[in-house]
Amino acid sequence: MNKSRGARLRRRLWAGRYLYLMFLPVLLYYIIFRYGPMLGLAISFEKYNLLKGNKNLITGILESPWVGFKHFESFFNSIFLWRLLRNTLLINLYDLLFNFPAAIMLALLINELQSRRFKKAVQTITYMPYFISSVVIASMVVQFLSPSSGIVNNVIAAFGGERQYFMVQPESFRTIYTMMNLWKNVGYNSIIFLAAISGINGELYEACRVDGGGYLRQMWHITLPGIASTIVVLMIMRLGHVLDAGYETILLLKNNTNQETSEVIGTFVYRRGIEKGEYSYATAVGMFQSVIGFGLVIFANWLSRRYSETSLW
């Protein structure tokens, strides 16, 4: 019996040989570029030997001396931990708090438009910034906020205000970043919600109207519950990235004077790892971030399955 099962398996594997051939490059990609780095996490427990590692990552990992949790301990005991956690969490929290409601509002308002052409035009325009690169957007922000020639300061000066050095004020950074992200992403997010709204059964609105519900009531009792599962799924996905989102853009806007609020985990890992070459330490910090992010996704998924019957898995 065992033999026939083996033979059957062989036959099935053989029947799928071209599919395996197709999958092979993809498999190699995942092993090398996605799982390879996971093995590389080992160096966070080591004193990574640059010379050996320069030739070959694997010998570098194997031959570097083991130091246990030393890098983690020094990060946890450093002054950076709380500042980084505070900055990373606050920047993402602000983003979440403003972006989600704004996108939902925008979707609801666009949905109320009567003219299909106008609706489409508004969608096209609000979606556009999503495709502009973060370097272009950061460049615009820096230019617009420039104290000498930026349009924002020109307007402030025209109303008799004092010109502000926005980019070097730590207290302005989160506001700047949140507004920038709002401009970039609100249209994109609203399209997701619009798609969800268009999937709501029209009879529900009919029923609500028959019961005397006005438009606000329809919005509250039908539209919002109708897109709740979309909101939850997006929230879960977003929560998993709450510690790593945005650091590439933040890196563009960060400078030495605003880093009290602009330094986040991702930019810190970049600075210590890539710029200073402290690979082991930076990997430990990055791993701390990945593990917490992973835990957050699992937690959010559990929470949501428990209370709203919506989940990723």
């Binding site: 993809v26 390879g36 093995l39 996490l41 570098g60 970049y270 990997t283």
Partner: peptide, 26 residues
């Protein structure tokens, strides 16, 4: 199994420095 293997990477990754070292190592 392969699908799980791929989707897992959406939620957990080696991060910036190990990826950098892999690229460098290659």
């Amino acid at each position: 199994f392969f699908t799980l293997m791929c989707t897992f990477t959406m939620f957990f990754s080696g991060g910036m420095i190990p990826t950098f070292l892999v690229v460098k190592g290659l």
